[in-house]
């Protein structure tokens, strides 16, 4: 306290100051830019060396095409419109599977979270299924549904289901009992208890589940498309591999990476918006 004279300052003046840890925003921005630039140094050096190595024929073009080469391949593919089609198909698959699996996971997680009876009935079975690796059920899905869209959607749905199921269940069960006591003293109705207490308190976990589910859906998409398909980014990759068109393989991999990162950032953006009340959230 900056009270050098030892005088009693009216406490209300000290007291009504919010404890926001606010730095002036100007130096913060400069620092952010700094960090960004520093992060770029390494990749640029690597790309430069890589380009040089290809240019001087140290590395074979079929094994590791030069970055510039990959870029022109990307432009070619984009111009024919082929690339756009493949990306669209892949996105639809991922989204479809994610919506089916994710919404089921969320609903089941909430049901199991809210009711002990439902938990006792469903959770043991679901936990057992959860331990089965997604990749291990691929042969089964192929046997049942062939190589068609159905087996792909189901595979992605299975992958997206569990992160949301587990995390929304956990979120509902970890509501602070002290706040429950408050809700009782304030005579919350069951409905208000759910909307004002349980769901907001479970939201951080649910959003985490959402992010993990998106990631899992994306991984499953790659696996599903590589196991056999006639369109999609995975097909593009497999097809190019057969003809040793390594630069196209690279384009496919980069597209998978970019969209994976984009979907993750999208959910993070929502987290930042919805969880701004959180103490620990330093988004």
């Amino acid at each position: 306290m900056d009270n050098k004279a030892g005088v009693l300052v009216p406490t209300s003046m000290n007291e009504n100051r919010p404890i926001k840890k606010s730095m002036s925003s100007q130096p913060k921005k400069v620092k952010k830019l700094d960090v960004f630039v520093r992060g770029l140094i390494f990749p640029i050096i690597v790309l430069g060396l890589w380009e040089l190595a290809g240019y001087t024929d140290i590395i074979s073009e079929t094994l590791l095409p030069r970055p510039s080469n990959i870029f022109t391949t990307f432009l070619d593919l984009a111009q024919t419109g082929d690339l756009f089609n493949h990306v669209q198909i892949s996105l639809l698959r991922a989204l479809g599977g994610f919506l089916i699996g994710g919404s089921l996971g969320l609903i089941m997680g909430l049901l199991v979270g809210f009711s002990n009876k439902v938990e006792q009935t469903l959770d043991p079975t679901l936990q057992m299924i959860r331990t089965v690796p997604t990749l291990a059920v691929i042969p089964l899905f192929i046997l049942w549904f062939g190589f068609g869209e159905m087996s792909k959607l189901l595979l992605i749905a299975k992958a997206a289901f569990f992160p949301l199921y587990v995390n929304s269940f956990l979120g509902i069960r970890s509501v602070d009992t002290k706040l429950f006591e408050v809700a009782k003293v304030l005579e919350f109705s069951r409905w208000k208890q759910i909307t004002n207490l349980i769901l907001p308190s479970a939201l951080p976990n649910i959003l985490l589940g959402l992010r993990l589910a998106l990631g899992a859906a994306w991984l499953a998409l790659v696996a599903a498309e590589l196991m056999g398909s006639s369109e999609g980014v995975g097909y593009l990759i497999m097809d190019a591999r057969q003809f040793s068109q390594t630069s196209i393989v690279f384009v496919g991999i980069i597209i998978f990476a970019v969209f994976g990162k984009a979907s993750d950032s999208f959910v993070r953006y929502f987290e930042r918006k919805l969880l701004k009340w959180r103490d620990s959230f330093q988004g």
């Binding site: 002290k178 706040l179 006591e181 408050v182 003293v185 304030l186 005579e187 004002n196 207490l197 907001p200 308190s201 939201l203 009340w277 959180r278 103490d279």
Partner: peptide, 16 residues
């Protein structure tokens, strides 16, 4: 609600 209770901690809803 006709018996208001103030706990040692404020126990506010952090999301409100």
């Amino acid at each position: 609600i006709d018996k208001g209770f103030i706990f040692q901690e404020p126990r506010l809803f952090p999301w409100f």
